[in-house]
Design a protein around this nucleic acid. Structure first.
Lengths: 228, 228
DNA sequence: CAAAATTATTAGCCTGACCTAAATCTTATT
DNA sequence: AATAAGATTTAGGTCAGGCTAATAATTTTG
């Protein structure tokens, strides 16, 4: 089994690559994501690309891309992480802003047997408490058909399916406003000049919420047919 | 938080001290228990006894004894370990020979919050699947009134309350024979010259089981009044 | 297109946790 | 009391995973 650091690096590269539509991940991006010095990343990744099997491809001054072997490990760790999040939420009553931190440590130590038992207890869930997809044992991800809230048309109704990012403060804030998974919402207006997006939660109070673009970008919506 | 190794060392010292009725633990005993070289123990324990607060008292050529601060940490780790064992057994269907290995890694990474939630889900158990007592948050242990099976008198009935040791093979063997917690047994005979002890499981088949002294020493019995 | 700014790499160092081999201390034995 | 046997510690080394400071490569800008 790979060390905890190795697993963290590979997971981070995978996630950053995903966030950048497959672009190679630069040294400094990875370093600041992991909270280590650039030089540490250079050293660590150098080991990865001379490992057997090779875990990342590395083009100096371009960045890192996972090999299939590296991606496999990353997906295993992500599967652990997200299953644990689900389990903590469903079996132990954690809220969605608490699960990430705990899972971050547990993901490196659970056995495959434990993973299987958790998955079974949960009925093999396909997404975690934030709507992030859980890879299956082979690493296949179930992709949702969603768009960021920023791209939802005015008056177009939709359902919240996923929230990107793990900042507990933001997650708590969203939950307080009723912006949780499966909530039905509708965009009332989008202020110009990149201003806030005003939305309403359908079938709930008539309150109108204004969200900044940064936040709205992280809320992924499954559009539904416009019923009005 | 202390490193995983530190926690392992302190836990080991605690358990060895317990097994030796409070005797100081020698370098080589600890080293072979942990599976590391003697020199590694010397180095590590030296750090502990010059730490702030000091974690072990060390008398050269006599051995190590935990200070109150060291014992506190050891008991926290043991509480984690045993609660996890309980949880795995009750919530995820692990058998008593499987729990130890998994708990051995999880004990170092769970948060206090998770510990509390597990304890609550289990109804604050006071012993783990092997009958080992679970320290409470303050480190208090509930001591059972038990004796090793080797000391149970012939014809004296008793109940299995605890099994010492975590060897999966032994635990599986015992379970197959019906020697599980709460089983009622009676000693039929004790062969002389340290020979095997023959027992019968009360209220079950009439089969007579012969156990070696080594094994019998690890089975702790709560004697009950002789009803015949 | 050269200089400035940015980004990445190298060099050299540190710490924790291990190791082996050699030296030293203690205890037991003659 | 001297020595052999056994236990323990010291000396010196490795490896992973960090760090800072200095250097080098690339990209941007004037």
């Amino acid at each position: 089994m790979k060390s905890q650091s190795t697993e963290d690096y590979l997971k981070a590269i995978y996630q950053l690559q995903e966030m950048q539509n497959g672009e190679p991940v630069s040294t400094s991006t990875l370093a600041s994501w992991l909270g280590v010095a650039n030089a540490s990343v250079t050293g660590m990744v150098k080991r990865f690309s001379s490992a057997d099997p090779k875990l990342v491809e590395y083009e100096p001054y371009t960045g890192f891309v996972l090999t299939d072997a590296g991606e496999k490990i990353a997906l295993e760790v992500i599967r652990h992480h997200r299953l644990i999040e689900c389990y903590l939420s469903q079996a132990l009553g954690y809220s969605w802003d608490e699960v990430h931190e705990e899972a971050e440590r547990l993901e490196h130590v659970i056995s495959e047997a434990m993973e299987d038992r958790m998955a079974q207890a949960l009925g093999n869930p396909i997404s975690d408490p934030h709507g992030d997809p859980i890879p299956d044992r082979e690493g296949n991800l179930h992709q949702l058909n969603v768009i960021p809230l920023t791209q939802l048309a005015v008056e177009q109704p939709g359902t919240i399916r996923r929230v990107i990012g793990q900042e507990p403060d933001l997650l708590r804030y969203l939950a307080e406003q009723g912006l949780v998974l499966s909530a039905h919402i509708k965009v009332i207006s989008k202020a110009p000049f990149n201003g806030p997006i005003s939305i309403r939660i359908v079938n709930s109070s008539e309150t109108i919420l204004a969200l900044g673009r940064e936040v709205a970008e992280k809320i992924l919506i499954q559009p539904s047919s416009n019923t009005r």
